[in-house]
Nucleic acid binder design. Structure first.
Length: 435
RNA sequence: GACCCCUUCGUCUAGUGGCCUAGGACUCCAGGUUUUCAUCCUGGCAACACGGGUUCGAACCCCGUAGGGGUCGCCA
């Protein structure tokens, strides 16, 4: 039988990474088995399920390249069918009506649990079981006439022909109920696999107040969709060898529920950042350039396209996340950049520095051509003849033209800036700190 | 509280009775290469929750303890 999995989120405007990881595992599992990955939007909460929220969800999936087979099923369109099924259960004596009081809304429909012990083979956790007395009858249709999650969820999974339900382990107890529902409805019980939760840096489950656990937040923090996908895939699963940075195809090929962890995992932003850097490096140059333009525009920087491209080339291999870009290149687009106080104190305001910078400036002015090779040669000649150390010249020069101690390779950076800017910046430095 | 689940370096993990003086990755530290910055290379720190069994032998099997988590809704 063809494998069919699904992702069934409620569109509330934010998708938690725990849910998104479940989506990734469902996707990986389906693709591994040559099956289908379906989407079902559980939008029965009319309050929160706005068109915007649905779009946010779709955007997040597109960002992570989770392609869906077939059209999404909107749960809100199926209420009649859910209700009919409840009536059927009622007529078969598998459910009953009762006024449970409390809210005083009249009678609701309650599903009758079979009263037997239950067990199943979980795809990740192995054999799971519970005794009959732990499972009470439960409401499937509210007294206001709307179907409850359990009923709708099971009916829709049947409708979509889901063969493998891969979800968070907070659903384990529900699984016993759902299995009984499948049986009462005369449907085949699918395979279940329960993923452990993702926990925060304190080792606790993410709460609504942990602002950094939504998919959109990771995008805003400058992570790439492919990198987050890879990272999340490895958070709770491993291919069994030492591979970590893997292509989609490799992950699809290697994915196996049996290799999934059954204990919770913590997100480590440092490792995600490292992995993101690996993906930044792999980005095709045009894509990297396009991303950079997009970022500086957001950062309010205006620049001539050719000059900007040259600047981006300078930081190509150093960018770890998308949001690194602007701070890393900002001083190359303005003459109003700041000087780092510590750098000035340690490397600039020292005896002899003034003379060195003055000499470097005049050497640069005398150059026939001002480019990477010529400045490199000129500085080396200067060091040779003056007897100065390389660092004694390079460090002050770097700070004079950039304001900071670290940054791109210096000679290419000189070429990109051009003679005029470079000498101008040296003058400014001299006037400001070494007058 | 009851029931269920979980427990290897700080973090993600490998490990399914001998290959384990427990391997890899991230982070951190120390050297080295690069006469700038970064990269890179080498090395280092660092873990089987605890206690009992079973066994010639246990991170791996069993029991218990502790700790953590989940569920117990006319939420999903």
């Amino acid at each position: 039988m063809k494998v069919r999995t699904r992702f069934a989120p409620s569109p509330t405007g934010n998708v938690h990474i725990g849910n998104m990881r479940a989506a990734i595992y469902n996707w990986l599992f389906a693709r591994h088995h040559g099956g289908e990955f379906l989407l079902r939007v559980e939008d029965t909460d009319r309050e929160r399920s706005t068109q915007e929220a649905i779009q946010t969800l779709l955007d997040a999936m597109a960002w992570l390249k989770l392609d869906v087979d077939g059209e999404p099923l909107y749960q809100s369109t199926r209420m009649e069918i859910h209700l009919e099924a409840a009536e059927l259960l009622l007529s078969k004596g598998l459910a009953y009506k009762e006024d449970k009081g409390g809210l005083g809304q009249g009678e609701c429909i309650i599903f009758k649990m079979p009263g037997t012990d239950a067990s199943f083979e979980d795809g990740i956790k192995g054999s799971l079981s519970t005794a009959a007395e732990n499972m009470q009858d439960f409401v499937i249709v509210r007294s206001n006439g709307t179907p409850v999650f359990h009923l709708a969820n099971v009916l829709d999974d049947i409708e979509q022909g889901i063969t493998h339900v891969i979800r968070g382990d907070d659903h384990i107890e529900n699984t016993y109920r759902h299995m009984a529902l499948y049986q009462a409805l005369g449907a085949d019980v699918p395979n279940f696999a329960h993923l452990p939760m993702i926990i925060n840096a304190q080792g606790k489950p993410y709460s609504k107040r942990d602002g950094d656990a939504f998919v959109g937040d990771f995008r805003e923090k400058g992570f790439l969709g492919d990198a987050l996908f890879n990272y999340l895939a490895l958070l709770g699963w491993s291919p069994g060898d030492d591979r970590e940075v893997m292509t989609r195809d490799e992950m699809v090929e290697a994915f196996d529920l049996a290799r999934c962890q059954s204990s919770p995992a913590q997100v480590d932003l440092r490792k995600l950042t490292w992995m993101n850097g690996e993906y930044m490096l792999k980005l095709p140059t045009e894509e990297f350039i396009a991303t950079c333009f997009c970022e500086i525009e957001k950062g309010g920087i205006e620049a001539a396209p050719d000059y900007a491209k040259a600047v981006f080339g300078l930081v190509r291999e150093r960018v770890k996340t998308v949001v690194d870009i602007v701070p890393m290149v900002a001083y190359l687009f303005t003459e109003e950049f700041e000087y780092e106080a510590k750098a000035v104190r340690k490397k600039l305001q020292k005896d002899g520095v003034r003379e060195i910078l003055e000499q470097v400036k005049s050497i640069f002015q005398a150059l026939e051509i001002f480019d990477e090779a010529s400045t490199d040669q000129a500085i080396h000649d200067f060091i040779e003849t003056s007897g100065l150390g390389f660092g004694a010249v390079m460090a002050p020069l770097r700070i004079a033209i950039s304001g900071i101690q670290s940054g791109p390779d210096l000679f290419p950076m000189l070429e990109v800036l051009g003679r005029e800017r470079v000498t101008g910046r040296i003058d400014r430095t001299l006037a400001q700190f070494l007058a």
